[in-house]
Design a protein around this nucleic acid. Structure first.
Lengths: 246, 246
DNA sequence: CGCTGGGTTGAGGGGGCTCAAAAGTGGTGG
DNA sequence: CCACCACTTTTGAGCCCCCTCAACCCAGCG
């Protein structure tokens, strides 16, 4: 299988040497069972992770045990970058399905910045894009209703799954529980269920045993409150690479 | 006045050459009046900004006009980095008070990655820390009550103001309106007001014409739901710089 | 077949919203 | 110095979205 580099080459086309290097990272991968932690909040930060297969989630814990899932990660995503600036992880990484990851030690990041600036820049831009996505998520949770949140999430998810080649004709696996969905969107399990049911009844989507099919994209988009999120940035490197003076 | 580089040198001590370079960026600064936009959502991304003085906010707009303020920026913060991966800005930057900024064109970023990898790394880590802060904010908005959100925000704000040298003995300027606070924390103006009043009545803080004084830190912390956010990462560069093999 | 995790549904209550208006506050010009 | 204005803060009343608690159902599995 082709390793899922679509997130990495999005901004900077990889040279032969860089591609070689990137493939070298994947040598030792690790399987994680569904529900098992990859790295817990508070553990020392020894590196970051690359999700090769399966879904993962990053989450924060509150004092009283409530939990906020911050992001659902799909194959090709990098996990754990935010904690790179911390000595001990600020987020819990957890496999939402059986998953395959490989690790990427701290020192490799430093070395990349010194020796492969183009690749470092690609990674940098990729994490900035994550930040935009996170900002959008915050705006869903902070300023929209349950139905708007759910539809916005489904549209975004479909978009990302498609980019990873994991959705065909609006149809994709949906392996997370409604409880997890609640923790992700900041609502109770019960209300997730009701909202999901009522969305189902609009005819815009159809649900069935761990899969979802989008039947009416335009309808979904009308239900969501946020703009279509995409000001694509594929020319980012070109804009940043021109050698004008400081 | 010493330029506010505290956010930059947090991870990587600047060499003489780098410090020189950094000072060079500040040559042409621009004043922005309170309430005026620095860059609107959708405008072409020509660079990022460095906030020298005053408060700024970054926000997202929804279709129906609702707005989510994603972050309040203080002197020393970098603005607009998330949009660097996009051709057109995904966030609106706006002066919350009269502010002074200076600009930092795209090409300068590219050049920094090629020629000053240590500085690039410092910036990279700094933006990752922003991401952690954003994740924490999401967890406030998604999983906590109005009172918890407000107190968590005030504690975080005080922490950051202190780092910038803008708070003494728990006392600091607080120049934003309750409407803006509502858009920031995902609640209505009216409910911000009631919550603020009731917080005032606990005796933990005291408010007065654009200033706030924290009277009881322990009490505030008890009211907030999140852990003290800090796994400081000042040794980040050391962890990333050691020259072990890939 | 019983057990367990997840999905579904009902009833009731409360936190936060909307609408509306009054009471500061500061800025501006006469 | 005062009158007026726009903006902000404060307060009240009513209601609704979403939460909690509590069943019940369903499918998969040992």
């Amino acid at each position: 299988m082709q390793p899922p580099f679509h997130r990495l080459v999005e901004f900077v086309p990889l040279s032969a040497e860089e591609a070689e290097m990137a493939r070298g990272w994947l040598v030792d991968s690790r399987r994680i069972a569904r529900g098992k932690p990859i790295r817990q909040e508070g553990e020392p930060v020894k590196g970051v992770f690359f999700l090769l297969d399966g879904w993962a989630g990053s989450s924060l814990l509150l004092r009283d045990g409530r939990r906020q899932i911050v992001k659902v990660h799909l194959p090709g995503d990098m996990l754990g970058f935010p904690s790179l600036a911390l000595s001990h992880a600020g987020e819990t990484l957890e496999a939402l399905t059986d998953a395959t990851i490989c690790s990427f030690p701290n020192a490799a990041i430093g070395r990349m910045f010194r020796e492969l600036p183009r690749l470092a820049m690609a990674l940098f831009l990729s994490t900035q894009k994550e930040r935009v996505a996170l900002m959008q998520k915050l705006s869903w949770v902070g300023a929209t209703s349950a139905m708007e949140r759910l539809t916005a999430f489904l549209l975004d998810l479909h978009h990302r799954l498609q980019a990873a080649g994991l959705a065909q004709a609006g149809c994709f696996d949906f392996p997370i529980t409604q409880q997890q969905l609640g923790e992700l969107l900041g609502m109770s399990t019960v209300h997730i269920n009701r909202t999901f049911k009522s969305l189902d009844e609009t005819g815009c989507i159809s649900r069935g045993r761990g899969r979802i099919e989008v039947l009416d994209f335009a309808g979904l988009q009308r239900l969501a409150a946020s703009f279509p999120p995409d000001f694509a940035g594929h020319d980012a490197w070109a804009r940043l690479d021109n050698s004008s003076r400081f």
